[in-house]
Design a protein around this nucleic acid. Sequence first.
DNA 1: AATAGATACAACCGCATGATG
DNA 2: CCATCATGCGGTTGTATCTAT
Length: 556
Amino acid sequence: MRQKKNKTKVDVRCNSQTGSKLNDEGNGEGAGEVLLKKGPWTSDEDAMLVEYIKKHGEGNWGEVQRHSGLYRCGKSCRLRWANNLRPNLKKGAFTAEEERLIVELHAKMGNRWAHIVTHLPGRTDNEIKNYWNTRIRKCQRYGLPLYPPDVCLQALQESQHGQGSNGITDCDRGHNDFLLQNIYGIHDTAFDSMKENMGFLPYVPELPDISSDIILLKGYSTQYCNFLSSTFPYLNHLQESTMSYIGSRGMDRNDCYLFDHNTSEKIPQSFGVHSPLDPGPSTHSSIRHSHSLPNSNVSSSKPNSKAGKLELPSLQYPETVSGFWGTSPPTPLYESDDAFIQCPPSPTALESICSSPHKSGLLDALLYQAKTLNCSKSHCSDKSSNSSTATPSDRAESSVLNMFETEWEDYADPLSPFGAASILNEHQAISTNGNSWDQLEPVQTSCDVENFLFENSAGNIVKLESVNQVLTHKGENQTMSEAELNCTWSDFLHASDWHDHCSGHSKNQAMMTDSSDDLAENKHMAGGASTSSQVQAVGSITWNNLPPIYQMSDLH
DNA sequence: AATAGATACAACCGCATGATG
DNA sequence: CCATCATGCGGTTGTATCTAT
């Protein structure tokens, strides 16, 4: 942990919040009159606080502020104590095991740092939060999924169990959707593109009681929104400029229909999203309001304090199952570590990524591997960048995608419980017919199969088709037949190549209207951490009305 | 060596919630 | 039932430090 200079800059009143601050901290002594110090704590202050707490114990922070002699508000004292001074704090970087646990716990709990930290003795929620934010940034930067596939699977599987036994709240369901997005992050991006370009969202969740908009928000705090928006710049454009970007990712409206057409009419209503080709009244504002202005059932002026709270998606589980993750077995991610060890370091870029081996081992190892794979597959990226229209960013994305292809292939070991087979089986198991979802009209028609076809980077025709299986049914058995595996992750990832083609170098490039920077960023993120607008879409689908999930059949 | 950018971390801020009167 | 207080939580910001150029 780095030591900062004690450079307290200002002494300010703690009641920055219209005089409520001191009240908030229980400072009843002339609220607004006491100058309270802010900024880094000095060792003297630390000593005073420790001394006081030794004498009087924790709690009653208002009293601490009043009687300890510290010119710090009670809240500041509490934080200082909790995060830095209390005994048994474990300092230093997270161990790989801790990181793994954090990831698993986050997959399960979302941004409930206070809950997560209870599984990590000696750590603080702030540490974990910082770690996670860093992870998000790294994943964003390198196009990696936030969650390892096995973690996603475990969470999903667990959720299925949880659903059967404990039940999952609507709140909890969102996080599983999030995990689904993580698992299928790459092609999800393609789905996003299709959604955007076809002017409708794929899912038509029946949301009798909760605004999709609220759920949408519920799943993603602002940090995620930032992540998502940077991952998918078109989101920003939706908000900040026009819809010109929509449709700019090169999708041909006629190329691919992934989703039930019957859903198309409902979705814009549900999500406040208009077809980009539908010159309706300012999609921009629609989107924006979709976040802030739920349907009429929800107050727009005073958001529902529960539903509207910016909280990680959550399909989180009841605390009763909290022990599950802590006991999860070693997973393929550690195999990645092996790869990290075995992989000969190549370019200095690798060093730049993993320049601090003492730091987060798992994530850095993953990044390291990603870079290594990226380099090793540069020839492959060349292939995908053969397009005469390929830009450097295209190629970069292609590399990322290829990298992911390899990485995911690492999970393709059919013997592994977390291998691709499992993933895809799991995938197949996901419901399209569950409960309210199956209230939808049967999939209509003309283009729901044919237009699932696309050509993967290997030149194979790959089909996306909806899977009419019910998660809950499968979930009860939890036994997936290998025969159900119709394709490999490689194919799945080739789908992202397809997305690559569609979004960048392909036929519809003429639709590209946005800045190359945004495109580059967007395309770069096509890799894995695609927890984005699709997440938003899916995020509004409750567990019992899951969206159609598609399996890919390599038709060759 | 200087600089810029990235990273990690501490601290702050606003809000929600439960307790209490 | 309502207002106030105390506390905790999660998101955000500021800055020291590290790293690459």
